[in-house]
Design a protein around this nucleic acid. Sequence first.
DNA 1: AGTGATAACTCGTAAGGACAAGTGACGTCC
DNA 2: GGACGTCACTTGTCCTTACGAGTTATCACT
Lengths: 259, 259
Amino acid sequence: MTEIQRPGALYQQVAAAIREAILSGEFAPESLLPSEAQLMARYQVSRPTVRNAIAALRAEGLIDVRHGKGSFVRSEGHPTLTLDRRIQHAPDGRFVMPGGDVWDEAEEPSVHRTRTTKATGRLLGLGEEEELFGCDRLLSDSTTGTRAMHRTLIPFEVAENVPALAQEPGQQPTALYAALAKARHKLWWSETVRARMPVPDERATLQLPDATPILHLSRITHGTDDRPLILEELRIGADRAEAAYRITADKQPTRRRQT
Amino acid sequence: MTEIQRPGALYQQVAAAIREAILSGEFAPESLLPSEAQLMARYQVSRPTVRNAIAALRAEGLIDVRHGKGSFVRSEGHPTLTLDRRIQHAPDGRFVMPGGDVWDEAEEPSVHRTRTTKATGRLLGLGEEEELFGCDRLLSDSTTGTRAMHRTLIPFEVAENVPALAQEPGQQPTALYAALAKARHKLWWSETVRARMPVPDERATLQLPDATPILHLSRITHGTDDRPLILEELRIGADRAEAAYRITADKQPTRRRQT
DNA sequence: AGTGATAACTCGTAAGGACAAGTGACGTCC
DNA sequence: GGACGTCACTTGTCCTTACGAGTTATCACT
C-alpha cells in the first residue's frame, strides 16, 4: 500500500500518484498498469474512486484501457506521418504536392452538390447558402494505416468560369489547380490549422483512440486578384500526424490582409 | 419523460439524446441544460447514468459544467485569434512577424541553460544531452485574454559562432533572426504543427477548459547550408487560436528533404 | 493430441445512498 | 438601506453492491 497526500479530491490524488509513477518510469510505455482491484488495495480506496482516477488519465491521453485486458501506458512516439503541405511546380509545369503521394483512396470519392455554411461561406468570401460542388474522400496511408478525411468545395460561381471544374469537380486537387492555371489564374494558397475534439462520426471514421484531437486543415486556393476559388479541408487524427510548412521572408507590403 | 432507443449502453443513449437535442437547437449555445435531477426524471435513469452521459459530452467538448450552477451548451465560435505565421522583411531590413505584435509578455522571460531531449535534439539535428540556451515566455493577448507559452532554444554550438546570441539569448525572435542575418546567414524557416491534450501543467498555465487540445507549433530557423540554428516552440489552447500559413508554388528541386 | 467447456481474471454498466461544496436568492437583523 | 445568515438549489465526491461482457489459461473430455 502506498500513501497519498493532501491536494484536492481523493481520486485526483490517486490519479496524480499513478501519473507520477508513469512519468518517473515505474511503468514503462506499453506496459500493463495494476488492475482496478490492485489499485483499490494499493491506495485503500473504492472502485469508483479508482475508476475516476483512471478516467482522468484517459482524458489526458496518458493511458489506454482495453476491456478485459487492463490499462496500458500509452507510448506517444513522434507522429508517424508528417504532412508536407508545400505545393510545387514540376519541370513540366504540372502542380505537385510533395506530401500528397502517400495517400490512396479507401473509397470512391463522393461528389455532391451542397451549400455554404456560415463557416465555409466566410472562408470563400461568400454568404450563407451559396451553391457549391462538394467532393468527399476518405484517404488512407497503407503503410501506417492512418486515415484522413478530405473535402473539396468549389462554388458554382467559380465553376461557371472554368468549365473543366464544372465537368469534373471530383478531380484531384492538383488537377483542379491545373485547370485554374489554364484559365489564366495565378495561384497562391492560404492555409489555417485548427485542432478540436472529434465529433462521434469523425471518431469512428478515423478510428481514433480516446482523448485524441483532430487536426483540421483548411486550404484556400486564391487566384488572380487574390479571390478565393476553392476550399479544401483535411481532417486527421492528431496522434498520428503533424503538418509541416516552409516559411520564407518576403518583402513586407504596405498592408496586406491574409484570409 | 422522453423515451430512449436501442443502440449501446444506457448512458450512451442518454448522451445521444442530449447531443441530438443540442444539435437540433432545442438547447441554444450558452443556455442552461436541465439539471441532473431533471435528466434523471426525464429519462428514468439513476444519477450515475446521467453523470456518465454528461461526462461523455464534456469529453466531446460539447458542454461546460460549472459547479453549483449547471451544464451549459458550449458555443464554439470561430477561434478568436488567428496566428499569422508569416515572417517578412521590413523596408529597412529588419524582420517583422505580422502576427507577432498582438502579444505582450505576462511575465519576465526566464532564461536558463538546459540540454536537448530526444525530441528537441532531433529537430535541431543534434544528439541527446547537447547544451542549449533556453528562454521561456508566457505570452498574453490583452484584448482577448488568450495566453500562450513560448520557448526559444539555442544550441551552444550556434551561439558560439554568433556572439550576439550568447550575450542575449533572451531577445525577441526577430532580434535573434537579425543577429543571425548579420552573421551572414541566409534564413528560412520550417514549421510543424501538432495537436495533443495538455498535461496538467499546461492546462493550468493556459487556463484551458475541459476537452481542449493545444496547438503545438515548432519553428526551426535554418541558415546557410540549411542547417538548423534555433528552435522555437509555441503552445496555445486550440479553442481560441488557429495558425495561418501562406503557400506559394516554387519550382520543384530534384529532391529536397524538409526537416 | 486436439478440442471445447470452464473458471478466473480483466473492465463496463447500473443502481442505491450519503455528504461536501459552490451559487444565488430570499429574508432577517442592525 | 445595507450587511449578513440561511436555505434551496446546483454539481462534486465517495462509498457499497450487483451483474454484464471481453480475455485468457487451464483442465477435462473425446
